Computed example of a mutant assay.
Amino acid sequence: MPKLSAASRHSVSFTVNGVARSVEVESRTLLTDALRHGLGMTGTHVGCEHGVCGSCTVAIDGTMARACLTLAVAAEGCDIRTVEGLGLGPGRLGVLQAAFKRHHALQCGFCTAGILMSLDTYLRRHPDPSREELTLVIGGHLCRCTGYAPIVAAALDAAAELRGAQKHPEETAHA
């Protein structure tokens, strides 16, 4: 990576949810700010800004990452997946999102985007997870509203559906 000064501006290009995007940022701009303010993608939330709460979790090249700890310039050329990329299309929930709805796995929703991204990333590599594995995955997220039991239940349900064990097609559209 070239030597960067704090005030210099750079064009950063990456793929977000399958679409090539570019954004002008200062060297010190965090990925959360580039996504939210530079690209208008507000699904990635900013919570603690220290990497503790997990609200800002995205997938970078298929790996969970805290966007509040990642400089936007470090994402140059990367494939980024955000919560906006989980849906099946406009107004259609993805499998994991629909399972969260069925299991009432969210209340205020602030932490939900990060939790969904961690679970989505994990389920892509581990399609048949145990309750204990999912508990560890979401252990890096702070949720003050739901508790974690409905979140784990939703993730188990979604994993089963993704494996073809059960179907809830009527639940995948927004009400």
Score class of each variant (00 low, 15 high):
residue 109 G to S: 05
residue 118 S to L: 06
residue 120 D to L: 03
residue 119 L to G: 09
residue 114 G to V: 05
residue 123 L to E: 00
residue 132 E to R: 13
residue 122 Y to W: 07
residue 130 S to E: 11
residue 135 T to V: 02
residue 111 C to I: 04
residue 135 T to S: 14
residue 104 H to M: 12
residue 123 L to H: 02
residue 107 Q to D: 04
residue 133 E to L: 12
residue 118 S to E: 00
residue 125 R to H: 13
residue 104 H to T: 11
residue 110 F to M: 10
residue 135 T to D: 14
residue 118 S to F: 00
residue 102 R to N: 06
residue 114 G to A: 09
residue 134 L to F: 06
residue 108 C to Y: 11
residue 133 E to P: 04
residue 116 L to D: 01
residue 110 F to T: 07
residue 124 R to Q: 15
residue 135 T to P: 04
residue 133 E to R: 01
residue 114 G to P: 08
residue 125 R to D: 14
residue 118 S to T: 06
residue 127 P to C: 10
residue 133 E to N: 10
residue 121 T to S: 14
residue 115 I to W: 04
residue 108 C to W: 11
residue 121 T to V: 07
residue 120 D to A: 14
residue 124 R to L: 15
residue 130 S to G: 02
residue 123 L to N: 08
residue 113 A to T: 12
residue 116 L to A: 11
residue 103 H to D: 05
residue 125 R to W: 01
residue 102 R to K: 12
residue 115 I to G: 00
residue 104 H to Y: 10
residue 128 D to G: 00
residue 129 P to V: 01
residue 103 H to K: 02
residue 116 L to R: 00
residue 127 P to A: 11
residue 103 H to L: 11
residue 111 C to R: 07
residue 108 C to G: 03
residue 116 L to N: 09
residue 103 H to T: 05
residue 108 C to M: 03
residue 130 S to Q: 10
residue 116 L to E: 11
residue 116 L to Y: 00
residue 104 H to I: 02
residue 123 L to D: 10
residue 113 A to W: 06
residue 122 Y to M: 04
residue 109 G to V: 12
residue 127 P to Q: 06
residue 123 L to K: 02
residue 115 I to L: 02
residue 135 T to Q: 15
residue 103 H to N: 13
residue 120 D to C: 09
residue 106 L to F: 11
residue 133 E to S: 12
residue 131 R to V: 13
residue 125 R to Y: 02
residue 126 H to E: 09
residue 129 P to T: 12
residue 110 F to G: 07
residue 134 L to Y: 07
residue 122 Y to P: 10
residue 131 R to Q: 15
residue 129 P to H: 12
